[in-house]
């Protein structure tokens, strides 16, 4: 096992390695002996029908569920069993399928919470407003403004997050995750509920994130959006890996065609670059 690991590290060195991962809820195997790797710097799509186990995989990687079996390695470090905030500190950030912004805080404060791991002022320093704490506070605020600008929300900085539009909240949530400067970013259906125009913006944002060297694992039902963005696709069904490969490979995969009967995964969507596919359309 350990020799296997060191070997893998010497060669391609995947950022994320999932091995024989399982999660059962009572009798239901939501994730079943799932193994895959995600290479550093890639955007990888995780797709599959409703209930396939995509969100469960995210919850396992980020520590919200303890696996029933298997292991997860982030750059060789075993994640299974760690608490979510520790996994976050190791460089995994995520968004949620059910939007989770801090509605009781302003947009800027939301991002400042995203900088939590990059600041350290403790209770005493805060209570006494020590100079070190005040300097850090100013820095956090400045950093947060930068991320807010990236989300295109500079003019909404002091608005309570619950008053932002749905699309704005989605972008805010992504940029809050980015503010943690993660190595691996897990996006759970970031396009859900967005207008076509907002999806284009989202695609641009994700590509920008990739250019910054962040590895992205993306769950998304919008096939156009996924296929235009990702380097690789993992297809999940009943908690098992149905197929994996480049978008082209996956769409030609007999099992995938069989499973989806070509309805959604029409080859036509591949050839005609959609607006959502953006700069990487071809």
């Amino acid at each position: 096992m350990s020799s296997h690991r060191s070997q893998a590290q010497e060669t391609a060195r995947p950022l994320l390695r999932v091995e024989q991962l399982s999660k059962s809820f009572g009798g239901l195997m939501a994730v079943n002996r799932l193994s895959f790797e995600v290479e550093q710097g890639q955007v990888v799509g995780l797709v599959g029908p409703n209930g396939a186990g995509k969100t469960t995989v995210f919850n396992l990687i980020s520590g919200y569920y303890a696996p029933s079996g298997g292991e997860i390695y982030l750059d060789g470090v075993a994640l299974a069993g760690l608490e979510p905030f520790r996994i976050a500190a190791l460089g995994v950030a995520r968004t949620f399928q059910s939007l989770q912004v801090f509605g009781n805080m302003t947009a800027l404060e939301n991002i400042m919470v995203g900088r939590h791991l990059h600041s350290r002022a403790g209770l005493l320093a805060a209570a006494l407003r020590l100079p070190s704490m005040r300097r850090e506070e100013m820095r956090v605020r400045q950093d947060a403004r930068r991320y807010l600008e990236r989300a295109g929300l500079s003019d909404r900085a002091d608005e309570l997050a619950c008053n932002l539009s749905f699309g704005e909240q989605r972008r805010l949530e992504i940029c809050r995750a980015l503010a943690a400067e993660p190595r691996l970013l897990l996006l759970d259906e970031p396009g859900a509920g967005l207008t076509q125009e907002e999806k284009v913006r989202l695609a641009e944002l994700i590509l920008q994130i990739q250019q910054d060297g962040v590895t992205v694992l993306l769950v998304e039902h919008d096939v156009d959006l996924v296929m235009g963005l990702v380097d690789r696709v993992l297809v999940l069904e009943y908690g098992e890996l149905l197929a994996a490969g480049t978008p082209e490979e996956v769409q030609r995969h007999p099992k995938v065609i069989e499973a989806y009967l070509g309805t959604q995964w029409d080859a036509a969507t591949l050839d005609a670059p959609t607006p959502a596919a953006g700069p990487k359309g071809g």
């Binding site: 980020s62 520590g63 919200y64 608490e83 979510p84 905030f85 976050a88 500190a89 950030a93 995520r94 949620f96 989770q100 912004v101 801090f102 509605g103 009781n104 805080m105 404060e109 400042m112 919470v113 995203g114 939590h116 791991l117 949530e173 809050r176 995750a177 943690a180």
Partner: peptide, 18 residues
């Protein structure tokens, strides 16, 4: 902020490393 974030969403605050 961490305390208020916990109030807003425990899950999301953990994801931010709180």
């Amino acid at each position: 902020r961490a305390l208020r974030a916990i109030h807003g969403s425990e899950r999301a605050s953990q994801a931010a490393g709180v």
